[in-house]
Simulated assay, not measured.
Amino acid sequence: MTRPTRTINKLHFEDLSAGRFEDLSLALVYRLRRWQDIHHDGRTGADDGVDIRAIEAASDNSLRVWFVQCKRYGTFTAADAKAAVRAAVGKTAVPPDVMLLIVGCDVTLATRTAYEQAAADAGIQMAILWTASKLEAMLYADHPDLLFSYFGVSLVRQERKREDDLRRTLAMKRKMARVFPHDYKPKVVIHSIDDEHYPEVDVAGNGRISSWFRVEFAGHYHAGIEVYLNIEHIIVDRIDGAWAEVGFGANGLDIDIQPEEAFANTRYDVVKVFTIGRIPFKNIFEIDEDGDEYYREPHLYCRFVDHGTPYELVLRREVDGYKEFHPDGRFPFENRDSRNSEQPAEDDSAVP
């Protein structure tokens, strides 16, 4: 079962006002060097094409003049870059030593090249370009205070949440080890935390599983617990190890035919396997160890957040061995006679 990747939303610099974007740029530039002097001319509106002017006190005691242009654009082209250089040097007799162009979007290589060439043609010794991705990396890596001030993103809160999640995971791991000691394999009732049907039967529809059901506890793994879902037969290709569930009916075997007989003289071995669902600790909200008048056995209340199930992974394991068959190696049973073992196995692992 493929797990979705958790991401942090992209920062939207275009949502800042032009003035606020310049303020953010000034804050970043101010921390960049040891400045002899720095002016935010863009705030007054009479900047003569230069939003920030600064004089750097270099390590050799020389002074370098910086011109900074801030462009909060949704897109920024090569023509825009050339225009920014012309505006910066158009009203000065001596070009700056360094020009820094800060834009609120990402740019193409052609735009970057055009900017650097235009700056060189204008006599500027060094041309620097900060794009949206560069700004975002700087804010997350080096300036979390500015990240919070301008975008309300608190890395402190995220760090505390990670710490709280870790504490909760370890506490749940200890609880599971106590409730399910080694070689103890009771029946377990799994509930969705959104279940409203128990103890009545939940007739699942629309491709979802029931909001509560009984399974047998199978054991522990590093990130959670395992439960037995069923026992079934699979066929395993001797050439590449790909496997498929043995299907019956349309595009499958006749119900009266035993799989061992059907594949006796083929490239496939028939293996009897447990279907095992792995429930990570993070998906287990709470456990009722004593159960109730209907089922006096442990009840687990879980978040059904992985494809509408509590399982981060559903795999197959040999009944009489330890070999596991991962979903990535699965192929449709109806392709058993036509599949090419040189091609990668099809992954339809979203279906247990």
Rank of each mutant, 00 (worst) to 15 (best):
T2I: 07
R3M: 10
P4I: 13
T7R: 15
N9D: 11
K10N: 06
L11T: 09
F13N: 07
S17N: 09
A18M: 10
R20Y: 03
L26R: 14
H40E: 11
G45Q: 06
D51P: 02
I52W: 08
I55F: 06
E56Q: 14
D60R: 00
S62G: 02
S62H: 05
D80A: 14
A84E: 06
A87P: 09
A93H: 07
P96L: 03
D97L: 04
D97T: 00
V98L: 12
M99I: 14
L101V: 15
G104C: 00
T108I: 08
A110Y: 09
T111K: 12
A118N: 13
A120H: 12
Q125I: 09
Q125E: 15
A127K: 09
A132F: 05
S133K: 08
K134Y: 11
L135I: 03
E136V: 07
D142G: 13
D142L: 14
L147I: 01
F148V: 01
F151K: 12
S154P: 02
L155S: 00
D164S: 14
D165E: 15
T169S: 13
A171N: 05
K173T: 01
M176C: 05
R178Y: 03
H182Q: 13
D183Q: 10
K185F: 14
V189M: 11
I190M: 12
D195P: 04
A204N: 14
G205Y: 10
G205V: 09
G207K: 11
G207A: 10
G207F: 07
R208F: 12
W212G: 01
F217L: 06
F217P: 03
A218R: 04
L229Q: 08
N230E: 10
I231D: 07
A244E: 02
E245Q: 08
I255Y: 15
I257N: 05
P259S: 11
A262D: 11
D269C: 03
K272N: 10
I276Q: 04
G277E: 03
N283P: 07
D290C: 05
E293F: 11
C302G: 09
R303G: 03
F304A: 00
V305L: 10
G308Y: 01
P310T: 06
Y322K: 11
K323H: 12
K323M: 06
F325G: 03
P327A: 06
G329D: 13
R330Q: 14
F331K: 00
Q343T: 12
P344T: 15
P344K: 04
D347H: 05
D348P: 02
D348I: 12
